[in-house]
């Protein structure tokens, strides 16, 4: 790959050295636990685990700054919106004092903070995964997780062709300019992005026509002939990977168990952990 497109940040931390498969299992267990967590108190341990995962990756702030700015901006906007809609629409407030009282009431605050905490926890876990996993390991990791190699190859092909098509876009734009097309550009970033719009149709058509050539080339090299497939990059599970997988499974199991037991009324959340 000529340019590194996926935001991988090189490093030597323990998270960088983990097997991508175990990191993937960890992210999914966080996702599952978040989905079934009953209230905000149950989200705090998950947030802590995600933060621990993020901080052990020792990612430099200078390289993750833009992502965090983006995530925090969304979270700020969303929490304000949540707070306002909840207190104005559902609070039944008539006067300004009522609205202010609603805004600071415990119920409304909790109700608007819970979804935002879920979003933040999920963002921390996935951002760490993407920043610490080199993109060339995505397909081998999927393949060696038991995913059929043909499916893993879709990921491989996609990552392989993204830079190719960005090049193709540049080439098509130059060809159009040679025929007299002048994209509005200059310093305005929006106008420069708008110049991409006329490229959608020609680039898509030429790429679609090349599908058959790529498929022929792959079949000539024997792709799809045999049922089994070996991977050039052999991944090996170390002790730390097994530990992370065990932690992830335990975490998800606890949250799912709590969810199921509440669903069937076997237990209820102790009063201390109940919020409203």
């Amino acid at each position: 790959m000529r340019t590194r497109f996926i935001r991988y940040i090189e490093g030597k931390s323990v998270i960088h050295r983990l097997d991508p498969r175990s990191k993937l299992i960890f992210v999914f267990s966080i996702l599952l636990s978040l989905t079934v967590a009953p209230n905000i108190l149950f989200l705090i341990p998950l947030l802590a685990v995600s933060l621990a995962f993020y901080f052990s990756a020792r990612l430099p702030w200078s390289k993750t700054k833009t992502t965090w700015k983006f995530v925090l901006a969304i979270i700020l906007v969303l929490s304000t919106l949540n707070l306002l809609t909840l207190s104005i629409l559902y609070g039944g407030a008539q006067t300004l004092e009522d609205v202010i009282a609603q805004l600071t009431s415990k119920e409304v605050l909790l109700k608007s903070l819970t979804p935002v905490t879920k979003l933040l926890t999920l963002a921390i876990a996935t951002v760490t995964f993407i920043f610490t996993t080199p993109p060339h390991l995505y397909a081998p990791a999927l393949g060696q997780m038991g995913v059929p190699y043909k499916v893993a190859y879709i990921v491989q092909l996609a990552l392989r062709y993204i830079p190719e098509y960005i090049d193709e876009m540049k080439k098509t734009l130059e060809a159009q300019m040679a025929r007299g097309f002048r994209p509005k550009g200059g310093k305005n970033p929006i106008a420069r992005i708008l110049s991409v719009v006329p490229l959608v149709v020609p680039v898509t058509i030429s790429a679609t026509l090349s599908i058959y050539d790529i498929a022929d080339a792959m079949e000539l090299r024997g792709f799809g002939e045999k049922r089994c497939h070996t991977w050039y990059r052999k991944l090996r599970m170390m002790r730390r990977d097994k530990l992370l997988i065990m932690i992830s499974i335990a975490l998800a199991a606890i949250y799912v168990a709590i969810f199921l037991m509440r669903l069937y009324g076997v237990i209820d959340i102790p009063t201390i952990l109940r919020l409203c």
Binding site: V151, L157, R160, T208, I214
Partner: peptide, 25 residues
């Protein structure tokens, strides 16, 4: 999962991702 379909999935994904990167702004 014929080879043509696999390549079509890969190429479609790559195209969609390449353009989205520009439009996500």
């Amino acid at each position: 999962l014929s080879t043509t379909n696999i390549v079509a999935m890969g190429v479609g994904t790559a195209l969609y991702a390449a353009f989205n990167v520009f439009f996500n702004i």
